[in-house]
Design a protein around this nucleic acid. Structure first.
Lengths: 327, 327
DNA sequence: TTGAAAGCGCTAACAC
DNA sequence: GTGTTAGCGCTTTCAA
């Protein structure tokens, strides 16, 4: 609005040198006399000069920005994951463009379209939505987390099968006879479903019938509660629940109270994720912990490699069980 | 790396028209024959053309990007706040550049410096760090949330004094005789301290001695736990605690267990924030709820006004008490 | 209804 | 050591 912003030219004029010289001082490149440097710096100071990052980006054809596309940030797992990603990216000189898809394919698509317009140097995605064609026909470097995007996008995932195995085995070891599992609806294909496979395999091996209730990540919490109440109504005999995330485990623990079930006496519960926030608020919850920070570091390292033009393979990271007391 | 990206020129050549025409089709501006439009669109399609957003930004001198500077995103309050901000900004056509200052003044400063270089059209800040000189000498539109930044930056805050009053009054009504408060260290000036003022005012009015323990938001959780244990050791007579955020309230509830205090029988607890995630995981916690989503909407509306060159005044939003059962 | 040309603010050959 | 010049890819007067 007010006065036009100061540009390189203005600094050059003020210092009585050429644009090139100012640019060199700015980037500390090439040979310059101490005197000139000082002169230019004085001019910059005097005019309170701020280089225009956009102009530089245009020339350099890189923005040092990485887009993050995840369902939301308002969740213990994704909050910690995105925080770790931001941190690691910052260490490597990248800033973060954040996009929450919120189970809204239109939003995800619009977001993606814009980012593909040379706004970012790379993308890290973990959105739940149906993989969109856009992801396929771009050669922007992409890495995904716990999500299958397309054939040419490497994935960082934790060992979901083993996580499901550890959780189910714990409940079996506790002597549970009626173990129920909660997971996403089947039509959303994610590595997450390996957890369910492990649960089903183990239950069958032990002569029990696997029963899975579907709770969509993006459901409003009241709907989630309703589904969980349904579990207790449909299966009063339930004595063990393996929840596919800690938030659901928390809901289950509360609703168990409504049904007068004591945990762990009447009902054992194992959660999944083991994010900081849930560990703090629900330390009593036994859960399968994903190596969230390590997943973030790995994803960033892989993205960096892709940006450098290298090929990288998908990676699987180990999980572990955290003993709380609920199972 | 591979083939050079397609640019406007290429599309123009392919369609046999000028750059101007292609640009017009792109922006749906000016008079164009149906035929030309179709021709150009076919060329775009064929070449899989993606406009370079950076070039446009350079010309337009606006990026449609807003920077968010907060301590972290891995926290129920800030997670929900930033999610709401992102959502509201997206509605208005802005994307979000996220920067977590993490109680690291160097990081905050570096982040800020870069954003001031015309990378964003505006800034919403809520970092805890000492206000940095940089904030003052820029004319980038800025709005702050629950944070005093500088004289010319309008603030969106909730009614912290009333929140402190509601919390303390509840504990007094419950008959607590020894009420303790946790809050930030005093040297970080935030509207948050109004909560403490209210607590102190009320306690003195009731002939009690206010006692505040300082828990820094950025302390590692083990340090927070240690401070809370100290409360119980120093003041075994404590029968009410007003925590300045729900995470601390959660820690208090767990440590109360270590000291064999039953809640609410032996100890009443009131938290602060009332964010979604804590409401889900700790529904039993009585807390003061900030209107987080409304704060986000207000901040975005104010920022938009500032970007449009209007002056705006700071705003204060009401809080309410949520009955859980811990007080 | 369309095009030529100037310019957004910066960088980097290439010359001197 | 320093300057001249030609772009980076787009938008927009102005003219035709």
């Amino acid at each position: 609005m007010a006065k036009k912003p100061v540009k390189l030219d203005d600094v050059a004029r003020e210092a009585g040198v050429s644009k090139t010289t100012v640019s060199r001082v700015l980037n500390q490149r090439g040979y310059l006399s101490e005197e000139t440097i000082a002169k230019v710096q004085r001019a910059m100071e005097k005019l309170n000069y701020r280089p225009n990052a956009i102009a530089r980006q245009l020339y350099k054809r890189e923005t040092k920005l990485v887009g993050l596309i995840f369902p939301t940030i308002d969740d213990p797992f994704f909050g910690q994951l995105e925080a770790a990603l931001e941190n690691e990216l910052y260490r490597r000189g990248y800033k973060v463009l954040m996009g929450n898809s919120q189970n809204n394919p239109a939003k995800e698509r619009s977001f993606l379209r814009q980012l593909l317009n040379r706004q970012v140097d790379g993308l890290i995605v973990g959105a739940h939505n149906q993989a969109i064609g856009e992801y396929q026909r771009t050669n922007l470097p992409i890495v995904s987390i716990e999500q299958i995007v397309s054939r040419n996008v490497p994935v960082v995932a934790s060992d979901n099968y083993n996580g499901g195995r550890l959780a189910t085995q714990r409940l079996l070891d506790d002597g549970c006879q009626h173990i129920i599992h909660t997971n996403y609806p089947e039509d959303i294909p994610t590595p997450n479903h390996e957890r369910r496979l492990a649960y089903e395999d183990l239950l069958r091996q032990h002569g029990q019938t696997p029963i899975t209730y579907h709770i969509s990540f993006d459901d409003p919490v009241e709907k989630k509660r309703a589904i969980i109440r349904q579990i207790f109504e449909d299966h009063p005999e339930v004595d063990g629940i393996f929840a596919d995330n800690d938030t659901n485990a928390g809901l289950i623990m509360n609703i168990a109270g409504e049904f007068k079930r004591l945990i762990p006496e009447d009902l054992r519960v194992v959660g999944y994720d083991g994010a900081n926030a849930t560990r703090i608020l629900l330390p009593q919850l036994t859960t399968i912990q994903q190596p969230i920070n390590q997943m973030a570091e790995t994803a960033v390292a892989m993205l960096q490699a892709r940006i450098n033009g290298e090929q990288v393979a998908s990676k699987m990271l180990p999980v572990k069980i955290i003993d709380g007391g609920t199972a």
